[in-house]
Write a protein that binds this DNA or RNA. Structure first.
Length: 574
RNA sequence: CGGGGUGUAGCGCAGCCUGGUAGCGCGACGGUUUUGGGAACCGUAAGUCGCAGGUUCGAAUCCUGUCACCCCGACCA
C-alpha cells in the first residue's frame, strides 16, 4: 500500500468527544469516524484490523468444527414473540415497521433466527452435532453508549450457536468452544482471563467471559491467588465465616430519634457505631414485587446474586415513592422489623450484635438489634459483592481484584430456546426432544478497542503483530534523494513479494510528520531510510513497542524483517 | 431515566456577561525556501454561529422551546 493513496487522516489534537484512550486513538489515527452516538464508520485501517480479528476467529472456529453462515440483520417480530423476548427485551431492541406495518427489529443477537433456521432443517439426531457461527453487525439501543467501540450501539460480533443431542454432548461442545476462544485471544496477542460469569436470566450454571485486563474496563473480576478461581464479581462465590458458635444475645432493641440521619455513614456517626454495626435495608422491585435486602453496613449488595436468589427477571432499586409506600418513611429509615414485604438476608448480618436498623418511621432507627433474635424465621443467602481481600469461596484464599473488558462469552444454554421454539430432533429411540444449545459471542470491534487499551503509549497505538493493519511501514525520509527513494522502493517490492503486509510512506512530507504518523497508527515494524545512514549502506530498523532502533545493512533488511515478524508473532503467543 | 456539561470552518477553541459587518491555532489548497521527530514565510478557500420561534432598528450574543453530542449515575443477552 502507498500511504499517499490511503484514506487515514490523522489528527494532532484529541477530539473532545473521546475520553478513553482507544476511542481517542482510533479517531486520531484515522481508523474510524463517528456518525451518531455509538455508531461509527470504519476507514481502511480500521477495516484491516477488523478483518484480522475476523480471520483469526474464522480459522479457529472452523478448526473447531463450526461452520459459517450469514443471518439477516433485520428480523421479523414473530420469531421474537415465539421466544417471548419481543415482550421483555425492552427498549434496547430497536423495533422498526416495514411499509405494510409489519413489526421487525434490528438484531441485537441471533438466537431466534438461528434456532428457526436449524429447527426447519434438522430433524434427526444423526444430523447432530451442529455448530454454526456468523460475523454480523448487531444493534443494541444502549441507554448510554460510551467509550467509543467499548460500548457502541452498532457493533460487529461473531456469534455462534451449537446444537447437540443431549446435555453431555452440549457440554463437550462448550469445552471445545472455550478452547477455541483461548486460542483466538492468544493469537490476538491480548492479555486476558477467562472468568466464571453469571448466567443472567438464561439459567443454567455454565458461562465464561473472556476479559481483557484493562483499568478502563467496566467489569470487575476477582481472582484467587491460591486456587486460581477467577470470576466476575457478579458471580464470585465468597467464603462465609463460620458462625456456628455464635451465641444469639438476649435482651431487646430500642427506638432512637435520629433526625435526618439517612445514610449508613450518617447513622454510624450519629450513633457512634462502626458501619459494620449498621444493617442496611435496601428495597427493590423484583418483577414488580417489593423485596428488602439486608446487608451489613460496610458491605455491598450484589444485585446479580439478589436476582438469582429470587429467580427474578427484572430487579430495580425501588424509587422514593415506592420506599415511602412500603415503609411509611422516606428513604433512609427502612428496616426489617415490622416490614410488610419479603426479606432476603445476607449471612453477614447474622452475627451483628447490637445492630442499628431503620424503624420504618421518619427520623427513627432501632438500636440493639440482633437479626436472629428479632427475626428468627429469616433464612440467609449470599448476596454480597466480592472485592479485593475477600476470602475465596472455593478454597478460602484471598481474592485479588481486576478491571476487565468483556470481549467474549461462552454460554451453555440448555433448551431455553429450543423448547420454546420447538427445535426438536428424534433420538435413536424415535423420541422427540429439544436440542441442547450453547451460544458463543465475540465482540469483534470491541476486541479491536480492547487491544488498543492494552497496547498504546504516549505516541499512539502499538499493535500486536497479529492485529496490525500492516506489519511493516517503510519511511523514506528524503524523497528528493533518488538513492533513498530507490532503496525504499526496492525494500517495498521485495517485502511485498515475500507476502509481507507493508505500507510505504511515499508522501512528500517532512521526516517528523512521517515518523509521528507511523507511531500514531501503530505499525509494529518500521524501516526508516535516511540519506545519511544509507550512504553507509544501512537502514534503520525499529520495533514500535521498543524505544531503541538499530542500524542494519540494507542488504540484510528483507531477511531481518521476515525474522522479526515471526518473532513478534511468537511473542504474542506466549 | 436522574445529575453535570458542550454545540461557532475538517479538528481544537475565543467571541456571548455588556447586542452593532464572525475571529485565532492546527489542518486543506497554491507558491518559495526547507528535509531524521508534527518546518518558515507569502497567498487562497472554507462557517445558514445545532435547529425553531420570540424580543430588538439590529441577535453567535438576550428570552422560550427543541434537537444532537459528551461525562457521572441508574441500566446492560
Amino acid at each position: 500500500m502507498r500511504y499517499s493513496a490511503l484514506l487515514a487522516p490523522t489528527l494532532k489534537e484529541v477530539p473532545k468527544e473521546a475520553e478513553v484512550i482507544s476511542h481517542q486513538l482510533l479517531l486520531r489515527a484515522g481508523y474510524m469516524r463517528k456518525v451518531a452516538a455509538g455508531i461509527y464508520s470504519y476507514m481502511p485501517l480500521g477495516v484491516r484490523v477488523i478483518e484480522r480479528v475476523k480471520t483469526i476467529i474464522r480459522e479457529e472456529m472452523t478448526r473447531s468444527g463450526a461452520q459459517e453462515v450469514f443471518l439477516p440483520a433485520v428480523q421479523p417480530a414473530e420469531l421474537w414473540k415465539e421466544s417471548e423476548r419481543w415482550g421483555y427485551y425492552g427498549p434496547e431492541l430497536l423495533r422498526v415497521k416495514d411499509r405494510k406495518g409489519g413489526d421487525f427489529c434490528i438484531g441485537p443477537t441471533h438466537e431466534e433466527v438461528m434456532t428457526a433456521l436449524v429447527r426447519d432443517d434438522i430433524k434427526s439426531y444423526r444430523q447432530l452435532p451442529l455448530n454454526l457461527f456468523q460475523i454480523q453487525t448487531k444493534f443494541r439501543d444502549e441507554v448510554r453508549p460510551r467509550a467509543g467501540l467499548l460500548r457502541g450501539r452498532e457493533f460487529i460480533m461473531k456469534d455462534g450457536y451449537s446444537f447437540d443431542i443431549d446435555e453431555e454432548a452440549a457440554k463437550r461442545t462448550y469445552q471445545v468452544m472455550y478452547d477455541a476462544y483461548v486460542r483466538i485471544f492468544d493469537r490476538c496477542g491480548l492479555s486476558y482471563r477467562p472468568v466464571e460469569a453469571d448466567t443472567g436470566n438464561i439459567g443454567g450454571n455454565m458461562s465464561h467471559e473472556f476479559q481483557v485486563l484493562a483499568d478502563s474496563g467496566e467489569d470487575s473480576i476477582v481472582s484467587c491467588a491460591s486456587c486460581n478461581y477467577t470470576a466476575n464479581v457478579e458471580k464470585a462465590e465468597l467464603q462465609q465465616a463460620d458462625d456456628s458458635a455464635f451465641v444469639v444475645p438476649s435482651g431487646s432493641y430500642d427506638k432512637r430519634h435520629t433526625p435526618a440521619v439517612r445514610t449508613v455513614e450518617e447513622v454510624a456517626r450519629f450513633l457512634g457505631l462502626p458501619t459494620s454495626n449498621i444493617i442496611k435495608t435496601i428495597l427493590y422491585l423484583a418483577d414488580e414485587q417489593p423485596v428488602a435486602v439486608l446487608m451489613r453496613g460496610d458491605l455491598e449488595v450484589n444485585e446479580v446474586k439478589v436476582k438469582a436468589a429470587l429467580k427474578a427477571t427484572t430487579l430495580l432499586l425501588a424509587n422514593e415513592a415506592t420506599v415511602l409506600e412500603i415503609t411509611g418513611a422516606p428513604v433512609g429509615f427502612a428496616g426489617p422489623i415490622g416490614l410488610g414485604c419479603r426479606l432476603l438476608a445476607d449471612p453477614s448480618v447474622r452475627t451483628v450484635v447490637s445492630g442499628a436498623v431503620g424503624a420504618n418511621e421518619p427520623d427513627h432507627h432501632f438500636v440493639g438489634v440482633s437479626i436472629p433474635r428479632d427475626l428468627p424465621e429469616l433464612t440467609y443467602t449470599d448476596l454480597r459483592l466480592a472485592g479485593a481481600g475477600d476470602a475465596c469461596g472455593r478454597c478460602g484464599g484471598t481474592f485479588a481484584f481486576f478491571k476487565g473488558i468483556e470481549v467474549g462469552q461462552v454460554f451453555y444454554l440448555g433448551t431455553k430456546y429450543s423448547a420454546k421454539m420447538k427445535a426438536q430432533v428424534l433420538n435413536d429411540k424415535g423420541e422427540e426432544n429439544p436440542m441442547v444449545m450453547g451460544c458463543y459471542g465475540i465482540g469483534v470491534t470491541r476486541t479491536m478497542a480492547a487491544a488498543i487499551e492494552q497496547n498504546h503509549d504516549k505516541d499512539g497505538i502499538v499493535w500486536p503483530m497479529a492485529l496490525a493493519p500492516y506489519q511493516v511501514i517503510i519511511a523514506p525520509l528524503q524523497l528528493h534523494e533518488p538513492a533513498v527513494v530507490e532503496e525504499a522502493e526496492r525494500i517495498y517490492r521485495e517485502l511485498t513479494a515475500a507476502g509481507v503486509d507493508v505500507i510505504i510512506d511515499d508522501r512528500d512530507l517532512r521526516p517528523g510528520v512521517k515518523l509521528k504518523d507511523a507511531d500514531l497508527i501503530g505499525i509494529p515494524l518500521r524501516i526508516t531510510i535516511g540519506a545519511r545512514s544509507l550512504a553507509e549502506g544501512k537502514v534503520e530498523f525499529k520495533l514500535r513497542r521498543l524505544p531503541e532502533a538499530t542500524l542494519i545493512p540494507s542488504a540484510d533488511i528483507i531477511a531481518e524483517t521476515i525474522k522479526a515478524i515471526a518473532a513478534e508473532r511468537g511473542a504474542a503467543a506466549e
